[in-house]
């Protein structure tokens, strides 16, 4: 089991774009960020096959692919436009309040905004 000392899963993330061409200018870069977007880490630039891989140790995370002016491994945060985005499967786990068997529960009573 790949578990960090704080109990988080360590995921190996593979990013792959299909049925698209390499952009004529700039560099596609893959990032991961928490769902609150308060922490961002750079996975790396996509290679000629439009693939990139990296590790992430957050339980829920977003994958963001941006078009950057160049490939700068020191870059801490994206500056270019977001081209694609995705979400970890764990991101699909959300509150039961207001859904399913608890549909009649008042979301705001539990701190959620309607």
């Amino acid at each position: 089991m790949a578990i960090t000392p704080d109990g988080s899963y360590e995921y190996l993330v593979h990013v792959s774009l299909e049925r698209m061409k390499t952009p004529p200018e700039g560099q596609l870069v893959a990032w991961v960020t928490t769902t609150e977007i308060d922490r961002v880490e750079r996975i790396g630039s996509l290679d000629e096959n439009l693939k990139a891989s990296g590790r992430v140790t957050w339980n829920k995370f977003l994958v963001v692919i941006t078009l950057e002016p160049d490939n700068n491994p020191e870059q801490l945060m994206w500056s270019g436009p977001i081209v694609f985005r995705g979400m970890s499967r764990s991101g699909m786990m959300h509150t039961m309040v207001g859904h399913g068997a608890l549909q009649q529960e008042n979301c705001t009573a539990y701190g959620y905004v309607n």
Partner: peptide, 14 residues
């Protein structure tokens, strides 16, 4: 030391 799950809130919590 774990990241537990609160299914009710749909959240992990330390």
């Amino acid at each position: 030391t774990i990241q537990a799950i609160n299914h009710f809130r749909g959240e992990f919590y330390p």
